[in-house]
Design a protein around this nucleic acid. Structure first.
Lengths: 172, 172, 172, 172
DNA sequence: TTTT
DNA sequence: TTTT
């Protein structure tokens, strides 16, 4: 439809480490499980109550997938923008199921790490500085402090060469 | 969780008339089915392609539910803000199913009608003018032009009295 | 600062035709003046009141600038996303002034035309279809119905060749 | 104008402590100065570059003003939503000036504290729990850990009674 | 399964 | 004036 907008904005924490699968090209596609929650004081009982919502996020955006793979882990707090997408699938018994996910398509979406130490903002528009000059291959300002504690584990099947390529791209 | 955000922004069109059910208190809860879509030209075939995404929206916000009930219909274009919520249910055969909806909770969310004639902005914060004076009971600027063509049908089970009460509330 | 977000979302109407200036490269930079407004019923006087806010928008994003140049005009309704930027300048008398604008940087921001006839969505991520295949040069789904009424006037200083180049890019 | 949206979303840090002034009613109006910034690696020089943008925020929303007054301080990181508003004023020399601010009107806007320890989410819709029950007077889930280090200084001109009233409202 |  |  002409003239439509489909946007999700989340600020929440990863419930587990990112899951990475690779396309034929070797590019990572990263899945995240993000929790958001609300809490309030029940007016009758006076108790604190809390409700957590879990969100499934899939990152096809190449640069953001690399960042997620390399700098996020269980517990990380992020800001992200994606779009809603519902897909149909069949379970083992042939039952039809629907799953709604927040998808960051290629060249789309945003991801910003919010953890206090090593937090870093990254989004797909970061190919350009405030000076208006485009900078291809530059994908943002991820701080090394944010690096996952076990970099050797970074990237399922990831090779050192891929990782150093990221070192070239990431500006630090 | 402290410090989280769960927000969906949609601009799209209703695929069918709003569905209204009533709480014990008589307040409407309105369900919408909203389409958003993207189109692009396939680089290989040169064909125009389009993909439509359908979204289920549930409006508990009392004022916005009244507006949806009375001023939206199949084809209407809206801007809306709500939050993602996934609920579990069982179909007739006892199968577990999950449905993800965009929910506008009581006192939360936004809904703005974007149709060219009679479009009108309404949101829950509209209890106050630009002058900073609170105005309870005032819920926005819905134009009569936007009224559904068959007001007699407005509101499943709705009575004339309820409708005129809305007339008191809606500022026109 | 690591971990920051600076985003403006507007739905409003152009108060005048887009203003286009050209960079040395010939790329258009387009300025828009957008009105948003709120209305409410004054609780004391019972009068309808309305307050309009005017926003200055500057589009450096190349594809979106072309769309704005060619498909927007006074009165057009748009959805747009950009970022806040305040710049300092001096008036003729040497007085320091500050102007805050909503900027759509290169490769960033979104612009979607919302007018009922010929409305069309365009954003910088539209280089890729729902199939996940990137499509460079494709910048969205602008409908010919949306074309400004006087295409001969399109593009200050614009040549026919540039315009037909747009015809190649725009998918219709 | 019917059908418009005027929304700003910021994630950033306070450059200084909140400034509080009081309305005749004693209600606080809080001004914040928020920094957002982007950084990138210059492709030519290879240097890290950074550009910071400063935003002026004014909070009329009563509950959010109290939270800002009591729980934010220089350096705090927040997520907030408000609307753009430009006002005209005259400096001492009679010169006309314009200032653009992000305003959180009464009953509108959102504010969520993002600091890692003691971070807390608060927004004006928090008068209701996930159970859909409205809870007046409840304005969110601010953690005591987030309290400013010198609570005695909290609230310019604030009395102990006002502060304990907040203690009643804030759910901890 | 996160976070506070 | 913040933050990394």
């Amino acid at each position: 439809m002409a003239g439509s907008v489909n946007k999700v904005i989340l600020v929440g924490n990863l419930g587990r480490d990112p899951e990475v699968r690779r396309l034929g090209s070797g590019e990572p596609v990263v899945s995240l499980r993000i929790a958001t929650s609300e809490s309030w004081k029940d007016k009758n009982s006076g108790e604190r109550k809390e409700k957590t919502e879990w969100h499934s996020v899939v990152i096809f955006n190449e640069n953001l997938a690399k960042v997620a793979e390399n700098y996020l882990k269980k517990g990380s707090k992020v800001y992200l923008e994606g779009q809603l997408q519902t897909r149909k699938w069949q379970d083992q018994s042939g039952q039809e199921k629907y799953t709604t996910e927040i998808v960051l398509q290629r060249f789309r979406g945003e991801l910003t790490i919010l953890d206090s130490r090593g937090g870093a903002g990254v989004d797909q528009g970061d190919q350009q500085g405030a000076d208006g000059q485009a900078r291809e291959g530059d994908f943002g300002n991820v701080s090394p402090m944010q690096r996952r504690s076990a970099p050797a584990l970074v990237g399922a099947g990831g090779s050192g060469s891929r990782y150093s390529q990221i070192d070239d791209d990431i500006p630090f």
